[in-house]
Simulated assay, not measured.
Amino acid sequence: MSDQNVELRKAGLKVTLPRVKILSILESNPDAHLSAEDVYKSLIEAGEDVGLATVYRVLTQFESAGLVARHNFDGGHSVFELDRGDHHDHMVDVEDGNVIEFTNEQIERLQHQIAEEHGFELVEHSLVLYVRKKK
């Protein structure tokens, strides 16, 4: 049984050809942040007959099942990345749209400290820095 089949079953999803193909594309680009259109384009280039609506539906199912994380970095444009279970933050280059993942323990501690100072416990967070190359 393929790794994709196992992952889909573990996530509680029925194994279907579109799901396997889409998961395969995401796994072959593990550090990428792909839009539904990017996934669709990869399917078309591979000669697969999967519609764009199916890609959107499957990515939404993957998000609900915890297989992918959805991000809306620029103006509501959703991109997806495999949820590898590790926390990281993002920087988005405002000039070319490249996404850079990073982790910083000092930032993590500070966020918890700030929440505590305001009487809260930090449960989850998302940090996105919008950057451009220095001139």
Rank of each mutant, 00 (worst) to 15 (best):
M1S: 02
D3K: 09
N5Q: 12
N5A: 10
N5M: 06
N5E: 14
V6G: 03
E7T: 07
E7F: 04
L8C: 02
L8Q: 02
R9N: 14
K10E: 01
G12W: 02
L13R: 10
K14N: 04
V15M: 00
L17G: 04
P18K: 07
P18V: 07
R19Y: 13
K21A: 03
K21V: 00
I22L: 00
L23F: 01
S24T: 14
L26A: 01
S28D: 13
N29A: 05
N29G: 00
D31L: 03
D31Y: 05
L34C: 03
L34A: 03
S35K: 09
S35R: 05
A36H: 06
E37Q: 13
D38K: 08
D38T: 09
V39Q: 05
V39H: 04
K41F: 05
K41D: 08
S42A: 10
S42P: 05
S42L: 12
I44S: 11
I44M: 12
I44V: 15
I44Q: 11
A46T: 08
V50A: 07
V50T: 15
L52T: 10
T54F: 08
V55M: 07
L59N: 01
L59E: 02
T60V: 06
Q61S: 00
Q61H: 01
F62A: 05
E63F: 00
S64G: 01
A65W: 00
A65V: 01
G66F: 00
G66E: 00
L67Y: 00
H71Y: 15
N72M: 06
D74I: 14
V79W: 09
F80K: 11
E81R: 15
R84K: 15
G85D: 03
G85H: 11
D86Q: 15
D86T: 15
D86G: 11
H88R: 07
D89A: 07
H90L: 10
D96R: 11
D96A: 04
N98G: 11
N98A: 15
V99I: 14
V99N: 09
I100E: 15
F102Q: 13
F102D: 09
T103Y: 12
E105R: 14
Q106R: 13
I107N: 12
R109A: 13
L110V: 13
L110P: 08
L110D: 06
L110I: 14
Q111C: 13
H112A: 11
H112G: 13
H112Y: 11
I114D: 08
A115S: 11
A115P: 12
A115H: 07
E116D: 15
E117W: 14
H118I: 08
G119N: 11
G119L: 10
F120A: 02
E121R: 06
V123I: 06
E124H: 05
H125Y: 10
H125W: 05
H125L: 03
H125K: 07
S126F: 06
V128C: 02
L129Q: 07
V131C: 07
V131P: 12
R132T: 14
R132D: 13
R132L: 07
R132A: 03
K133W: 05
K133G: 12
